[in-house]
Design a protein around this nucleic acid. Structure first.
Lengths: 200, 200
DNA sequence: TGACGGTGAGACGTCGGGCGTCTTAGTGTC
DNA sequence: GACACTAAGACGCCCGACGTCTCACCGTCA
C-alpha cells in the first residue's frame, strides 16, 4: 500500500496533543482556545507541547490541519480504491468527499463559530495544500486512465467543485448523491479524456 | 395583575444589550465572552453599555440573571394561575418548572460548557434569590390554602427539590411528568397542610 | 435657534493573563 | 549509573480586554 502522507507518522503523545487541540478549538474556538486548555485536556505538559511543536500556537493548528487532511484523504482513497472505471473512481471520490465534509462535526462547528478562519482554509490559504493532497492521493488511481497531466488537471477541478458545492449547495445538483452527481460529472470527464479514446 | 419583578422594567436598549450578553455567553462562554463581543452583537456602543450597566462585566451578567429569572417565574406563574386546588397548583408548578428547565437551551449549553459557574448559580450563590423569587411568585397562589408561613416553607422545599431532581434525575420519580410527580408530591403536601384540615 | 439628553465612535492608561522559554525534579529503560 | 523523556511550574514579556473619558452627532423640546 502506497503511503500518502505529508510527513512522518505522529507518536502517541503528539496525537494526544492534537486531539486536545481539536477538542479545545471546537469547544472554545480557534482564537479563544488557550495553550493551557490544551495542557489540561491532553494531560501533556506545557514544556512537552512546545518541544513537540516548536513555534507554538500556530504550529499546533497547522499540525492539526495536516493530520486531519491526511486522515481525510486516506479514508477517501480507501473508499475509491476498489473502483475500476474512471467514471466510478471520480464519482465515488466526489460523492465520498462531499459526504465526508457534510458529516464532519468539527468542520461544521468551526464554520458556524468562526467562518472567517475556516473559510480561509477552504477557499484561499488552504486550497493549494488541499489540491496537492488530493492530487497525491488520487492521481495514482486516475493516471492509468488519463495519464499524469490530465489527471492532475481533472483532480484540481474536481476538488474545487467539491468544495464550492459543499459550501454553497446548488439546487441543480447534489454532489453527495451518486445518482445526481454521475450525470453532472460525466460531461466533464469526456472533456478531460484523451481524444484518441473519445467516441466523438 | 400583580407585578412580580426584581426591579423596574428594562428599556429597549437594555434588552438588546442583555440579549447580546445571552447570545455571546452561549457562544463563547461566560469567561471568554468579551464586552466588545456584546458591543458588536448588540449594536450598542461601549460607552452606552457602561452607562446602562455601571460596574461592568459582572453587573451585566447579574442583570441578565435577574431578567431571565423574572421571565422564568412570570411564565411559570401564568401556567399555574388557573389551577384551583392546592394539589394542582403545586403539581403544575413543579412539573412546569422542571420542563422549563429541561427545555432551556441556554441553560443546557452553559451547564455543559461551564458547569462551575452555572452550578454555583443553581445550588449555592443563586439559590437564595431563586427561593425569594419563587416565593414572591407563587405564595399569592398558595397562601389562601396554607397561610403565608406554611406557604413559604413549602415553596422553599419544592424549589430545592425541583432543582435537585433537574440536575440529578432519579429513577424513582420524574418531576417533569405529572403522573409521576403527583403521587410523589402528595404526601409532602399533607405534611405541610394545617392539622385542622388534615384527614388523619 | 439653542439647550439638552441619549448615543456612537474611539482614544487612553491600566492590568491581568496568556505566551513562549527555561529550570528542576521525577520516572522508566537499557 | 547514564540517558531520554516528561511533569510541574517559575519567569518576564507583551498583547488585548477592561473601564473611563472625551467629543461629535442626532433628535426633541422649549
Amino acid at each position: 500500500m502506497t503511503e500518502v502522507s505529508s510527513g512522518r507518522a505522529l507518536t502517541g503523545v503528539e496525537d494526544r496533543v492534537l486531539d486536545a487541540v481539536l477538542e479545545c478549538s471546537q469547544h472554545w474556538g480557534y482564537e479563544r482556545m488557550t495553550i493551557d486548555d490544551v495542557v489540561e485536556r491532553s494531560g501533556v505538559s506545557r514544556a512537552t507541547i512546545y518541544r513537540l511543536f516548536p513555534g507554538g500556537r500556530e504550529v499546533l493548528f497547522e499540525a492539526l490541519r495536516v493530520r486531519e487532511l491526511d486522515r481525510f484523504f486516506a479514508e477517501l482513497r480507501a473508499e475509491v480504491e476498489s473502483a475500476d472505471t474512471l467514471d466510478d473512481i471520480v464519482v465515488r471520490a466526489v460523492v465520498g468527499a462531499t459526504r465526508a465534509l457534510r458529516d464532519d462535526e468539527h468542520l461544521a462547528a468551526m464554520l458556524a463559530a468562526e467562518p472567517g478562519e475556516m473559510l480561509s482554509q477552504l477557499t484561499v490559504d488552504g486550497v493549494p495544500r488541499i489540491i496537492r493532497m488530493a492530487t497525491a492521493s488520487l492521481t495514482p488511481l486516475v493516471a492509468s486512465h488519463l495519464g499524469p497531466a490530465r489527471s492532475r488537471a481533472l483532480i484540481d477541478v474536481l476538488a474545487r467543485l467539491t468544495i464550492s458545492y459543499f459550501l454553497a449547495p446548488s439546487p441543480l445538483v447534489d454532489l453527495g448523491d451518486e445518482a445526481s452527481a454521475r450525470p453532472f460529472l460525466a460531461p466533464m470527464l469526456r472533456e478531460f479524456s484523451p481524444p484518441s479514446t473519445a467516441t466523438n
